[in-house]
C-alpha cells in the first residue's frame, strides 16, 4: 500500500511542483493519474511510485509501511527493484540488446537465477518465442510492449516462477500491462 501525505516539492527557484498532495493507493487497485501538462504528475510519480528517484521537500510517502522520504540513498535502489515495475510510454527497451537480452538484463538486476533461461521462458509464454534474437528496431509496438512487460515480470513478481510466468502471460493477453499493479 502506498500512502502519500502533504507532499511538497519546491525547486531551487522557489517554484512549487507539488503543493501538499495526499493520496492512498491500495494493493490491487488500478489508479489513473490525469492532469494538464506541467501539473506535477511525473514529479509525484518520481517521488512516490518510482521509489524516491526525486526527493520531496516535505511530506511523507509510506510504501508497505516504510517511510521513503528521507530514506538513505543507498537503500532506495533495492526498494525500486523489489517493489515496483514500470512500462514507459515508449517501452524504453535497450536498442543494442535483443529481446532476450533486454529481459535477461532485468532478470539479472533482480538476481534471478538462470536469467537468460527464465527470460526465454517468459518471452515464450507471451508468444514472443520466435523473436528472442530480434532487436527492438525490428519489433512492432505491441511486441515491444510484450518484451518490456516480460522484463518487469521477471524483475518484480514474487512467488514461484511458473506463477509469475502465468501472470505475465495473462496481463499480456488482457493488454493492461502498463497499469497492472504487482
Amino acid at each position: 500500500m502506498v500512502i502519500v501525505r502533504d507532499l511538497v516539492k519546491t525547486y531551487g527557484t522557489g517554484a512549487n511542483a507539488l503543493n501538499g498532495v495526499s493520496m492512498d493507493v491500495n494493493a490491487g487497485e488500478v489508479l489513473v493519474l490525469m492532469g494538464p501538462s506541467g501539473s506535477g504528475k511525473t514529479i509525484l510519480i518520481s517521488i512516490s511510485i518510482l521509489g524516491g528517484i526525486l526527493t520531496a521537500t516535505s511530506g511523507s510517502v509510506t510504501i508497505d509501511g516504510r517511510e521513503i522520504v528521507g530514506m538513505p540513498e543507498k537503500e532506495l535502489p533495492a526498494l525500486r527493484r523489489d517493489l515496483f515495475g514500470f512500462i514507459f510510454q515508449d517501452f524504453t527497451l535497450f536498442p543494442a540488446l535483443t529481446a532476450l537480452e533486454n529481459v535477461a538484463v532485468m532478470c539479472r538486476l533482480k538476481n534471478v537465477p538462470h536469467p537468460s533461461r527464465q527470460a526465454a521462458e517468459l518471452l515464450e509464454s507471451v508468444g514472443l518465442g520466435a523473436k528472442l534474437k530480434s532487436y527492438p528496431a525490428d519489433l512492432s509496438g505491441g511486441q515491444k510492449q510484450g518484451v518490456a512487460m516480460c522484463g518487469r515480470c521477471c524483475a518484480n513478481a514474487s512467488g514461484d516462477f511458473p506463477e509469475r510466468r502465468r501472470g505475465c502471460a495473462e496481463r499480456w493477453r488482457s493488454q493492461d500491462s502498463a497499469l497492472a499493479p504487482r
Binding site: L50, G51, I53, K74, P77, A78, L79, R80, R81, D82, F84, G85, F86, F88, T92, F94, M106, L109, K110, G151, A155
Partner: peptide, 16 residues
Amino acid sequence: LKEFGTLKAMGATNGQ
C-alpha cells in the same frame, strides 16, 4: 543517458 535512467528506475544501483 536515457538507458541509464531506465536502469536506475528499475532499481539498478549507482555502482551497477
